[in-house]
């Protein structure tokens, strides 16, 4: 049983969130690789049982450039069996709040077994910790039941 968190961050908000989720996955006994996007290489996705994708959102709700290869990897690799989640940070003043999370959500729903999505406004606060717990619970739930 193996999990990965693949993420990108500019301001540090999404990487903080990625680390919070990583701690919680490990504390649930799930061995989890924490992979910044520049260390990601295509062809690795199918070896994982769980993958969480973390992304900020650029401009008009767009996908950051550096996440495009990962997005395409999910479309081309054998990932039907992978349980996935997507999380991100954003600013709700923009018309498409965390738009990149939504873009990943729709694709992951079609290509994988999407379990959960999580949006956090800017730097994660105390109240977001519970939501990180729920995110990890949901990601690991089905696998633990099996």
């Amino acid at each position: 049983m193996k999990a990965a968190i693949i993420y990108t961050s500019v301001t540090g908000n999404t990487s903080t969130l990625a680390e919070l989720i990583h701690e919680r996955m490990e504390s649930r006994g799930m061995e989890t690789d924490l992979i910044p996007i520049h260390e990601f290489r295509p062809g690795q996705l199918s070896q994982y049982d769980i993958i969480a994708v973390g992304t900020y959102t650029w401009d008009n709700g767009e996908l950051p450039l550096e996440m495009e290869d990962l997005y395409e990897a999910f479309e081309t690799e054998d990932v039907k069996h992978v349980t996935t989640g997507v999380f991100g940070t954003g600013d709700s003043f923009f018309a498409h709040y965390c738009g990149a999370v939504d873009l990943f959500r729709d694709m992951l729903f079609a290509q994988t077994s999407l379990a959960v999505t999580l949006k956090v406004e800017l730097t994660p606060q105390q109240t977001d910790l519970d939501r990180c717990d729920k995110f990890c619970d949901r990601l690991t739930r089905e696998l633990i039941l099996v």
Partner: peptide, 13 residues
Amino acid sequence: YTKVSSSNGFDEL
């Protein structure tokens, strides 16, 4: 891709 939401069986936190 069709726009999906929690009614499709995943959780939105």
